[in-house]
């Protein structure tokens, strides 16, 4: 397994000099995942922060072939590229020895919401590609609007904390299970805070025949209102509170990769650093906070049980 020193020395596919906010983890997530293969890689990227900050014409941070099409179609687009690869190989225009991997990146808006149909169909068709959703829990490129990945109680610009409605009232969409319902060979949830785990999952995904999926938490400095040096720490707290369980679904089998057990922290430890949750820790919003805690506990226990049972859910 590559350590951080090896990683730093690697020829990177996504180069520095892009224009993300200070402390934004999204490009780090992308670079880390892409470092997990030595094969050629082609990237498709949905409209969103990652795309915007890396491709401001006439510059591009992408040192590999890259396409941004529109917002909701990163998966359909990469499926076209992957199909072209197979076709051109068949007709001999691409050398038989060339091995190319295909990766699509999308934010949670471009994945859970507007791009879900495109993703679902590409998974169902079985293209060999890896879809990576960097999940910052909202539409950040457009200023922090709610998405279906935004957790209960969060303050967003389209569902703000008001006098009669206190931010988002609905639970997060369970994208991992939706993806798994396509019976793809490999899906995993990962976090930047657990580097070897992330790299291992990226390596697995990038060597899977057929579709693979990675869901990585990407704490947003600007909209979560956290300090610029906190993104990795917030990722760690998300894992240690069981808000963001590290797990895989491989051929239908759940595997929990990390259980904080006795060291599990209450959800407030994750929330208290974030401006978007300031209100949630006030006593008057305790009901909402309890709902969030109950949901986190329930989801974690479910994943844990499913991994203990060890049978394929396919």
């Amino acid at each position: 397994m590559m350590n951080l020193f090896d990683f730093a020395k690697k020829a990177h596919k996504l180069l520095p000099g892009h224009r993300s906010c200070a402390g934004c983890p999204a490009p780090i997530v992308a670079r880390a995942i892409l470092s997990a293969t030595d094969d050629e890689v082609v990237v498709s990227n949905a409209t969103g922060c990652l795309e915007v900050v890396t491709t401001i014409y006439p510059q591009s941070s992408w040192n590999i072939p890259f396409i941004h099409n529109t917002f909701e179609n990163a998966a359909a687009t990469i499926s076209g590229v992957e199909t072209a690869y197979r076709s051109l190989k068949k007709s001999g225009r691409i050398n038989q020895n060339r091995k190319i991997r295909f990766v699509a990146f999308g934010g949670d808006g471009g994945t859970y919401d507007i791009g879900l149909q495109s993703l679902s169909a590409a998974l169902e068709r079985g293209h060999t590609f890896t879809y990576v959703c960097y999940d910052n829990e909202g539409y950040m490129n457009t200023g922090g609007q709610r998405s279906s990945a935004t957790p209960i109680g969060a303050n967003t610009t389209t569902d703000p904390v008001g006098e009669v409605r206190v931010g988002k009232q609905e639970s997060r969409k369970d994208l991992m299970k939706i993806v798994a319902a396509h019976h793809i060979p490999y899906a995993a949830q990962a976090s930047l805070s657990n580097w070897p785990d992330l790299l291992k999952k990226a390596q697995k995904a990038l060597s899977t025949e057929g579709p693979s999926f990675l869901l990585v938490l990407s704490p947003c400095v600007a909209v979560w209102k956290i300090k610029p040096d906190m993104a990795v720490e917030l990722s760690r707290l998300a894992v240690d509170t069981c808000f963001w369980p590290l797990y895989e679904i491989e051929d239908g089998k759940f595997r929990l990769n990390f259980d904080p057990a006795g060291n599990k922290l209450p959800i407030a430890e994750f929330l208290k650093h974030q401006g978007r949750y300031k209100h949630l820790l006030e006593p008057k919003n305790k009901k909402l906070l309890d709902r969030l805690q109950a949901e986190v506990d329930h989801e974690f226990e479910k994943i844990k049980k499913l991994s203990e049972i060890g049978i394929s859910v396919f």
């Binding site: 099409n69 359909a76 590229v81 199909t83 149909q117 495109s118 679902s120």
Partner: peptide, 26 residues
């Protein structure tokens, strides 16, 4: 024909996929 046919789930994806394929060099 030797064409690879992608049986997509919508016209939006049909055009998106051919954009991917065409930009790929196909």
């Amino acid at each position: 024909v030797s064409t690879e046919l992608i049986r997509v789930e919508s016209e939006h994806s049909a055009m998106s996929a051919v954009i991917g394929a065409s930009s790929a060099g196909a």
